Simulated scan of single mutants.
Amino acid sequence: MAEPDAPPPSTGAPGLRAERGRRGYLSGIAAEDSVARHYARKGRVIEARRWRGPGGEIDLIAREGARLVFVEVKASRSFDAAVARLTRRQIARIRRSAEAYCGEAPEGLLTEMRFDLALVDGRGAVHVMENAFDGG
């Protein structure tokens, strides 16, 4: 007997698409959780998760002393596949949102900042590329 709050079983392509979307969302949350734990183990404080600014969403914002670290999380079957998913357009959107976030910080746009790319592979291993957006 099905639980009363359970969604009805999938009956076609829209249901399959929705299920893939739900799995992708949950996978993204799990990857962000892994990356947040990675930064916490290194003594960083997570200030915000999934912060939405004018350019779009920033996955994680960590504090490293006076510096803010804006982290884009990419998950895929391998680190190479994950890094290939980052586009110049995403980088530009993340930078715009980071500027908005820093605009509210005590030092404003003079806040020291860094942009990291955190990769999570199919086994759940985390690899962080610090200053990943330099020159981008």
Rank of each mutant, 00 (worst) to 15 (best):
R23W: 11
P14K: 07
I46A: 00
V126F: 01
R17N: 06
F115T: 12
V71K: 01
S27C: 02
E19D: 12
R93L: 07
L117V: 12
R95I: 15
V45Q: 13
R95Q: 13
A6I: 06
R123E: 06
G55W: 05
L60W: 08
A105I: 03
E112L: 12
E72Q: 15
M129C: 09
P4T: 11
F70I: 12
S10V: 15
A82T: 01
E3P: 08
G21F: 04
I58L: 08
D33W: 07
D33N: 15
R85S: 15
E107M: 13
R20P: 01
I29N: 00
R22I: 03
A6P: 09
A36R: 07
I58E: 02
A6S: 14
A31Y: 00
G53Y: 05
F70A: 02
R89D: 10
R22E: 12
E107R: 15
P8H: 05
I58F: 03
R44E: 08
A98I: 12
R93I: 04
A92V: 15
G124I: 02
A132N: 00
G135M: 03
R50A: 09
R20A: 08
D59S: 06
R89W: 07
Q90H: 14
L60F: 03
A100R: 12
A30R: 15
R22Y: 06
M129E: 14
E47T: 11
P8G: 07
F79I: 12
R50W: 07
A48Q: 15
T111A: 03
D116V: 01
D59Y: 05
R44Q: 10
A82H: 09
L110E: 14
G28R: 12
I46L: 13
